[in-house]
Design a protein around this nucleic acid. Structure first.
Lengths: 212, 212
DNA sequence: TATTTTCTGGACTGAATAGTCCAAAATTAG
DNA sequence: CTAATTTTGGACTATTCAGTCCAGAAAATA
């Protein structure tokens, strides 16, 4: 509906009183959708599930987020943001970069079975959509480069701190660590014991330290 | 229907004329279903997709395999069998067990983009079902122990061949290698370049060789 | 209170889907 | 050819699900 304003009197006549607060808490609703998609997957999450998890009405959901696909992508983007933030939060200026790395790898040993069973929403999306969904693929790529950059920085810091050999290639080590991290995620999701997960984390750091 | 054979005459009376060849090629149909499930996932594969991929009629499918769930589980079991076989085929009595290990890790650099995009059907099933499906979980566990056993043997052989330090723990190294293998699968599925995948494989073997 | 707007919830639609049913064609043995 | 049995394919059912529509409740300002 186009609104043509001629003068204030007419405007007043047409729009005399403004109404109900424009929106509920959009971010909270998105966070709710994220939880549902994360635990149930894209196909597994019905619209009813989503509405219940978001605590909003059907109409509000479609008005605010478009459709299921769009809601999923926005949830995934939100997840990646949170995930990245989590990484950087544990970064700081720790005196032992290698300890930070070990902390990343060992995170699964500190998570409950339920948390590990959910896995990583990014990986779940990738394995579900393969490379059929360009937006999911692009998101995965972006996250990969961002995380690998961060890991490479940590490896560099570990070298400067004398914790690992200066001859280790930062980028190669970062790719290696990222792959291991994703592998651990899957192993944890498949039900590997905390013990096994811890052994892998330890072994990975030991291997890194041993390299010349 | 139980067949009680008293003598040839009675048998003849009750089953005077046997009919059309009892079954089409069950294994071929299953292989077709496997392909469809692998590329499209469980939810993504409609019954029509499956029938087309299996080249059999609707009725035959339900008669022979039960329902979609059962067909999927049987396909997954079949996949795991093939996958395991693939591993053992590359084992042999290779003079360099470490080269065999490298071959496993580098397999993704020899695969086409399409192959890598499909990923591993076992991982796809795990990330799709989480741990909600006990049979999928059990299958994943079985495969894990079987593959880790095999990797541990290879590590032991590498030690005997003097390729890596005798102080490396077989089981820990095997868990580590398995996690890396799964990580590489996911990285490949997410679209990592052959170059990056190769770097990770090389780095992993180098790290293993460096350990004391 | 009156008006405007947004939210809410339920009813509805159209499409897709898993699974069933049935009848006709095909195939083998007597 | 006849009998027996399996395959085949299409019609059918019941359910689920994404998305739309509508009308009434809620909220805020004047």
């Amino acid at each position: 509906m186009q609104k043509i304003i001629l003068d204030s009197k007419i405007q007043n006549d047409y729009f005399p009183a403004m109404a109900r607060p424009k929106e509920f808490d959009r971010d909270a609703a998105l966070a709710g959708a994220l939880q549902v998609f994360w635990t149930k997957g894209y196909e597994g999450a019905s619209t009813d599930d989503l509405l219940k998890g978001m605590n909003i009405g059907r109409q509000s959901m479609y008005d605010t987020f478009g459709d299921k696909q769009a809601l999923f992508l926005e949830s995934l983007r939100c997840y990646h943001k949170l995930d990245n933030k989590n990484f950087f939060d544990h970064l700081g200026d720790n005196p032992s970069p290698l300890k930070v790395l070990h902390g990343f790898l060992a995170i699964f040993t500190r998570r409950s079975d339920e948390e590990n069973a959910r896995g990583c929403m990014g990986i779940n999306a990738t394995t579900a959509f393969g490379r059929n969904n360009p937006e999911v693929t692009q998101l995965a790529r972006n996250t990969a480069t961002s995380v690998e950059d961060m890991l490479a920085q940590l490896v560099g810091a570990a070298k400067e701190a004398g914790e690992i050999s200066a001859r280790v290639d930062n980028a190669a080590a970062a790719s290696f660590l990222y792959a291991t991290l994703q592998g651990l995620t899957v192993r944890a999701q498949a039900g590997a014991s905390h013990d096994e997960l811890a052994r892998v984390a330890d072994f990975t750091i030991e291997a890194l330290k041993a390299m010349r």
